[in-house]
């Protein structure tokens, strides 16, 4: 396949998967802008409305979308020969490099902080009610960390290809 077409397809995939990933995160912020802690009653009864709502939101789509987004982004940089420059934050590649580091942090957060705690909250991993309540707070903070990180992520990703790179030469 022609390298330019491959690059365009990767960029398309990167955008689509990124919108699915961050879109899920933003959706949770819009639907629940203010934190409301779970209580023991929510978790001790599997039929409670809040627990059922939590359970139905767990489908893994955004977690896997994060892997697709990250992989497509990395592959794009690699096939352009700019991965090394982005990793070392060299010159005009510094903005996309910063975006890449933030995106990597977000993916690791989703998989290795949010997910293990959310598994306990949902009862997918056995835990006491008090432990599940503690984990629900960490899940919230982890999710909002990614919301917060998405702002500089999008700024530096956009700056890398839409004029920002020129400013940083």
């Amino acid at each position: 396949m022609d390298a330019a077409i491959f690059d365009l397809l990767l960029r398309w995939l990167h955008f689509l998967a990124g919108m699915i990933w961050v879109g899920h995160n933003y959706s949770s912020v819009v639907q629940r802008p203010t934190y409301r802690p779970l209580c023991a009653e929510d978790l001790s009864n599997d039929d409670s409305p809040r627990f059922q709502a939590l359970l139905h939101r767990e489908h893994g789509v955004f977690r896997w979308a994060s892997v697709v987004t990250w992989s497509a982004g990395l592959l794009m940089l690699w096939q352009r020969g700019t991965l090394g420059g982005a990793l070392s934050l060299s010159g005009a590649l510094a903005p996309i490099g910063i975006g890449m580091y933030i995106g990597t942090l977000m993916m690791l957060n989703a998989w290795f902080v949010l997910w293990p705690h959310q598994q306990k909250v949902l009862g997918l991993v056995p835990a006491t009610i008090s432990e599940r309540l503690r984990c629900s707070r960490i899940s919230h903070l982890s999710s909002r960390t990614n919301t917060m990180l998405s702002l500089p992520l999008l700024f530096f990703m956009a700056a890398g290809a839409h004029g920002g790179a020129y400013l940083f030469k």
Binding site: T34, Y35, A94, T147, M148, L151, P152, F155, F168
Partner: peptide, 30 residues
Amino acid sequence: RHPYDTATGTVLLGALLTVLLLALLHFVIL
């Protein structure tokens, strides 16, 4: 309350981090 407990607090922190990283890029990295 923790800034993450409201949507506004979360967005403001994100904007602040963007500015800080921009300053880091401009004055330190490049």
